[in-house]
Design a protein around this nucleic acid. Structure first.
Lengths: 157, 157
DNA sequence: GATTCGCTGGACAATCTGCTCAGCGGAAGG
DNA sequence: CCTTCCGCTGAGCAGATTGTCCAGCGAATC
């Protein structure tokens, strides 16, 4: 839960060059291999590093269109809607949010036209009252965590 | 750009057990090691698999609060706003979207109270006219790609 | 002063990686 | 029907890495 600077450097290094291996990391960081190994184990068991799964690019898979949909749910239909949305492959993530007891979900589609199909499938469910969609045009800041990690590391010396 | 079923199984397997290694994969998939190696190389050079960077959990880092903010930008201030937001570590990602020439960004914070600080920092910039924030309560569907991969693999036999 | 903890530097066997090779079969093209 | 191209197989090899020990040491804690 608490990250020190060495942890931060390990994560940053790993983010830059994921295939690097423990030995090479210890060389670059100037610490013993066992230290890096122990740190990595701790980071993982603490849940700071969830894993090293492959980062798949939907665009390269043929889904270049991304959109965010805000959903308004009928009272008490939350669980059903979740179950419904989790069956749609194009729903990449789903959050329940404050506000209107709403949900926010990230969608991808093969094209703008295809997005219509996806949205129809998403909202074609009884519990969903209304949906408003915003198509993503650009992604100036792709999902990132390093700056946050560095900030957390700073605070902990 | 086109994914067949073997590719799909490779990605899925890798997502389930990232530390698995090429040799073990070839054993489980019942194909030669060279095949898996070649497929992986192709998937990476095609950009389907961007990398294997560590997946960091902001909550475990001490940032358990997530929120989405919709920003309304003053005409022509887009570039400045992007630059501004990219300097805020708590801004995890940023998209420009259709609609009101707006932006959507994902934020994290140490607490609900801390979120206020983050939002103040985010919107404390001249080019931002208005911001509306939705705090995430639950995350029924965490960011996932596997179902999409499987669908893409199906279509390509 | 005694103990605990994390880091160091070194060692070990076991394993995996990157690379190469020849052979084989299907698909595409002539 | 024949030829060529391409991907997969199964194998081998040297080199590097991993997981796992260990003893020593300094700092912080009790």
């Amino acid at each position: 839960m608490a990250i020190d600077q060495l942890d931060g450097r390990i994560i940053a290094l790993l983010a830059r060059e994921p295939r690097i291996g423990v030995l090479e990391m210890s060389r670059r960081l100037g610490v013993a291999r066992g230290t890096v190994q122990a740190r990595l184990d701790r980071l993982q068991s603490d849940g700071v590093i969830r894993g090293f799964g492959p980062q798949v690019d939907p665009a390269a898979l043929g889904y270049p269109v991304t959109a965010f949909a805000t959903l308004q749910i009928r009272q008490g239909q939350g669980p059903d809607v979740r179950a419904h949305l989790s069956t749609v492959p194009e729903v990449l993530e789903l959050h329940t949010t404050t506000g209107n007891g709403d949900m926010l979900c990230r969608l991808v589609a093969r094209s703008n036209a295809d997005l219509q199909r996806v949205i129809d499938r998403v909202v074609g469910f009884d519990g969903i009252v209304r949906a408003s969609t915003a198509i993503v045009m650009e992604n100036p800041v792709p999902l990132r965590v390093i700056p946050l990690v560095e900030q957390a590391a700073e605070e902990r010396g």
